[in-house]
Structures are given as structure tokens and as C-alpha cells.
Amino acid sequence: MTTGTNVSRKMAGTAALLALAAVLPLAVTEPSQQNFLILILMGAQMGVAWNIVGGYAGQVSLGHAVFYGIGAYTSTMLLLTLGLTPWIGALAGGLVAAAFALAMGWPCFRLKGHYFAMATIAVAEIMQILVTNSDALEGAVGLYLPMDQSGWGVLIFLSKLPYYYVILGLLVLTVLVSWAIERSHIGYYFRAIKDEPEAARALGVSLTRYKLIALTVSAFLTAMGGSFYAQKEMFIDPGSVFAGTISIKIALIAILGGVGRLTGPVLGAVILITIEEYSRTLFGSTGSGTDMIIYAAMIILVAVFSPSGVLGLLGDLRRHLPGAKPAEVETSAKEIRP
């Protein structure tokens, strides 16, 4: 059995990657470049969170902005009205999003496949309209975070560096949760539900219960990402956190990298955010809407050439490379063996 050495190799790789991420800002000191790194980590975090329900459990949500927005608005409102620290505000946002996920999943999971995806779009769109028309949440005007405060208590910083480490920590947390699920019976049940729901039921797996677990955990983590967004941008409005484009972006990051694998969304974030940022500098303000063009092109490319994402593509290449060991077939299944 080579699985033992595989795992220790994987652990060493993860540790090296983490160490690299921790010291990277020492080399990259330009604020705009640090911002770019933060955007990648934010994308990776939302992709890993989406992957729990959309990847492992195979329930494709195209409305994850609803959780992102709930997270952003909950922590911001708690900070503005009660002066509550965003550390607790983000947890509260996660809980509100999780409760919302339960309420939304109950009826939506009666729908299967594309119909479920369409229902999630509808829920997110309705939510955006409701918030836009809510006086209590300042409607379309949006919410500003206090500009006169800073520090770890209010989680507002003048430099980019602290934000970098906060989002790195949140990404690590999200990956750890995802990893724990993958290794537990829940992860096996998710994959069973994705592959053959009827067979899973025959083995005693409650589809509703486990789909709800997937959506709720995913919603909680996505909402925390939304809270971070609010802290970093110091301004939120319905268009920036509840928009359909956010939902698409969250799903696309995971799909592009490779769904159902832990590292897929991280890779997807690196690729997507890089392209997005370069196109932004290239086209400038005349290019508003180019992000949608890029997303569309990405979806077509992934669907046509590699439904298993870039990771799947790399796996295929490795198998077809001369000298590759045929027995070393990289399956997602193999990666989770301890």
C-alpha cells in the first residue's frame, strides 16, 4: 500500500504551500499586488465553500450570492447598530445564512438537477430585490462601514497586509471543514447522493437530511466570506454582494478548477481571478461587463473540453504522458484514503 506515503507527501505539500502563503506578502509589498493576492484567496474561499454542496454532494447552486450577501449585511448591520465586533458578527452572519439555507433547501431540494439550480437563482434574485427595497438596510444606497475606526477589534485596517492574513485564515478554516467532511461518513454519503441517489436511499441514506447538511455548512462558510468582503471594501450594496454575477463566479471558480476535489476551487480561483484582474487593467472602465463575457467563455470551454475542470485535465495529461504508471489512476476517490 502506497497510501501512507501518499498522505504524508500530501501533508508535506500542504504545509509547504501554507508556509509559502504566509511569507508571500514579504516579497509582494506593492498594495495593489497584495490586493490581487487577497482577491485570489477570497475567490478560493468561496469556491471551496461552494464545492461542499455543489461539488461533493452534486447539488449545483447558482444562487450562492444570497448567503454571501446575508453574511455581509448581517455583520455590517450588527457593527453599525450595536457596535458588535465583526469577529462575532461574521459568526452571526454564518448562522443566519445557515438558517436561511435550511428554510430554502427544504422546498428547493424537492427539485432535482437543473430545476434545483433554477430555484436557487430565483431565491437569490428575490433576495436582491427585497434588500434593494428595504429601508432598514438602506436599500440601493448601501451601507458604509465606519471610516474613523481601525484595528483588530473592528477588523478594519489601513494597510492590506492584515486583510491578507485574515482571509488566509478563513480559507484555511474553510479547507479544514471541507477536509473533515470529505473524510467522514458525510463525505461518502455526499458522493453517493451525487452518483446514484436512488441507490444511496436503498442503503439508508436520507437524501433530504444530507443535502440540507451540505447546503447549510456551505452557506455558513460562504456568509463568512461575505462578511470579510464588507470589512475589506468598507461598503456594501445589493449589487455588490447579492448580484447574480457573484453566484456565477462562486460556482465557476469550483467548476473551473475541478468539482468534488479539495484543491480544485483553489486552482480555479488562481486562474479566474488572474484573468479577471488582467482584463480589468486591459479594458479599464470601458470594459464593464467584460467579466460576464469571461465567465461565459470559461463555462463554454469547461463544458466542451473538460467537464472535470483543470484538475481533471491535468489528470488526463498525466495518464497519457509516456512513462506514467497506469496503475496510478488519480481519482478523487483515491485522494481521500487515509
Binding site: 461518502y188 446514484e196 441507490a199 476517490a333
Partner: peptide
């Protein structure tokens, strides 16, 4: 047959 295709 309805085996879970992605699993061993």
C-alpha cells in the same frame, strides 16, 4: 446496476 461510479 447502480454502483457509485466515482468511488472504488
Amino acid at each position: 446496476v447502480r454502483v457509485f461510479q466515482s468511488m472504488t
